[in-house]
């Protein structure tokens, strides 16, 4: 069974008395261990899709199952628990807490998970080691470079051992050299079996990932799936503009 399954997901916003469909019937599945890119210009709905996949928001209609849990009608607390246990986020602007040092930043998700302090420390140190920042453990984000900040953010995203990691334009604020290093880190994580979804508008990055989903006007664009795995369904000719459910 796929790790993430979406069926006919719609998300509409109401602006005044006008309804705007940010997502207009998305059907998609992601398998465990996949390394994929969601691309599209701004306004294409890729951020909205990531928010739904990341349990930050609920769809207006449709069903969304993540790791066997139907989260399409989940409460705020259930969503928080999902985000805490099964999902990791990496943001374009790092979003570290500036007053805490690296260790505390990485520990933070485990604090909300109720992990005891000693275990928390061990696991945080392991995650920091994974991103090669052991020598900066007690620095605050303001004392780190952009690339180092993003590594801290990645350590924070993987520390709770989530099922899936979402990265929203992870190289957007970095120079190309540092960005390359971050992408390499993601690739290494993916090779070690982690499911990683990178949201970007940069085709150069997306082209190098095994699978790409291109968004346009709230739909998945047809015919651009780069890699078709065994479980990825064929594109249904009956419904152009949508990817048929499995």
């Amino acid at each position: 069974m796929a790790l993430v399954e979406l069926h006919d997901i719609r998300k509409t916003y109401r602006v005044g008395d006008q309804e705007i469909a940010a997502l207009d019937g998305i059907t998609l599945s992601i398998d465990a261990g996949e390394f994929l890119a969601i691309i599209g210009p701004s306004g294409s709905g890729k951020s909205t899709l990531m928010h739904l996949l990341g349990c930050l928001d609920s769809p207006t209609s449709g069903s969304l199952v993540i790791d066997g849990v139907d989260v399409s009608r989940a409460s705020s607390n259930q969503l928080a628990a999902m985000r805490n246990a099964k999902i990791g986020f990496v943001f374009q602007s790092f979003n570290l807490l500036p007053k805490f040092d690296v260790l505390r930043n990485v520990e933070l998700p485990m604090v909300y998970a109720g992990v005891p302090a000693k275990v928390r420390r061990e696991r945080a140190m392991a995650a920091i080691e994974r991103v090669d920042l052991l020598h900066r453990v007690h620095n605050t984000p303001l004392q780190l470079s952009g690339g180092q900040c993003q590594r801290v953010a990645i350590a924070r995203a993987i520390v709770n051992d989530p099922k899936i990691v979402f990265a929203d334009e992870p190289t957007g604020n970095l120079d190309s050299h540092t960005g390359e290093a971050i992408l390499t880190l993601f690739r290494e994580l993916a090779e070690s079996g982690r499911t990683i979804v990178i949201v970007t508008h940069d085709n150069g990055i997306a082209a190098r990932l095994p699978r790409r989903i291109e968004m346009r006007d709230g739909r998945i664009r047809v015919g651009v799936e780069a890699a078709v795995s065994a479980t990825t369904p064929l594109i249904s000719p009956a419904h152009p503009g949508e990817e048929a459910g499995a």
Partner: peptide, 8 residues
């Protein structure tokens, strides 16, 4: 950020 990483 806190909400995103799982704070209720």
């Amino acid at each position: 950020v806190r909400r995103a990483i799982g704070a209720r």
